[in-house]
């Protein structure tokens, strides 16, 4: 017997005491699993507290800053200049950009732009100081930005190896209040990276220290349409 059948057989024998689930099947809705739906009581909240759109964006800014991300606000017209300033503060440098980053974002900045190519090795990317990306969604209650590898975000490694990450969030369109709302918007088939502040560790005496392997500086630009 192979181990697959062995383990599945053990599971079935282990559950011999469990009464048979007699929830009736629902023939008219073949995609639904009533046993599962009835098993879990989802009386928990979809979001915590009622906030206006502006208040939700404020909460995002507050929680990002609480975990040591640096938060900036800007309009679309100002955005290229904000990015220019943030890059210039780090000195002359190489900047990684994903293939689908809106070109106007970088129109004012004048660093050496590096495009991430499939053949680039991690060691080559290690020479780059900063990376500029967009995001898929941002979660206010937890101060989290989520990347899904979209054209304005690129491969996962480009937001990992450089020490400085500038992430642009379109507010309020890309902002949700809570974790449940974020999951509804995300596609599990894409590789996802959830980021809440810069890299940190609690491994020394269970106290949080920022800055281990990921980018040690995370700057989030909240850019509004008007």
């Amino acid at each position: 017997m192979n181990s697959r059948d062995l383990i599945l057989g053990r599971v079935r024998r282990a559950l011999a005491d469990v009464p048979r689930d007699d929830t009736p099947p629902v023939p008219e809705q073949p995609g639904r699993d009533l046993q599962y739906e009835q098993a879990v009581d989802r009386s928990y909240l979809r979001e915590h507290g009622a906030r206006s759109v502006a208040e939700t964006v404020d909460l995002l800014a507050e929680n990002l800053a609480d975990y040591r991300a640096i938060v900036h606000r800007s309009t679309e017209e100002e955005l290229p200049y904000v990015i220019m300033r943030l890059l210039a503060e780090r000195g002359p440098q190489y900047v990684l950009v994903p293939p689908g980053l809106p070109p106007e974002w970088m129109s004012a900045a004048d660093p050496t732009r590096v495009h991430d190519r499939a053949v680039s090795t991690p060691r080559e990317l290690d020479k780059v100081t900063s990376v500029v990306t967009g995001c898929a969604v941002a979660i206010a209650e937890t101060g989290t930005i989520v990347l899904d590898g979209g054209p304005d975000q690129g491969r996962r490694r480009i937001t990992l190896i450089p020490d400085h990450h500038i992430c642009v969030v379109r507010v309020p369109d890309q902002v949700v209040a809570s974790v449940p709302q974020a999951l509804e918007r995300l596609d599990p088939a894409r590789p996802l990276t959830w980021i809440s502040g810069p890299s940190a560790t609690s491994d020394i005496e269970l106290d949080r220290v920022e800055g281990v392997h990921g980018p040690r500086t995370l700057e989030v630009v909240l850019v509004s349409g008007e």
């Binding site: 975990y67 499939a118 979660i139 209650e141 937890t142 491969r155 490694r157 590789p191 959830w194 949080r208």
Partner: peptide, 29 residues
């Protein structure tokens, strides 16, 4: 679990990084 685990373990609203992957992705990882 993404609400209960970080708060319960490191006492954070959310841990700094969470990675999710489904099989393999062409050209990434």
């Amino acid at each position: 679990f993404l609400q209960t685990l970080p708060r319960s373990s490191t006492a954070e609203r959310m841990n700094p990084y969470t990675s999710m992957w489904t099989g393999t992705t062409d050209g990434d990882g």
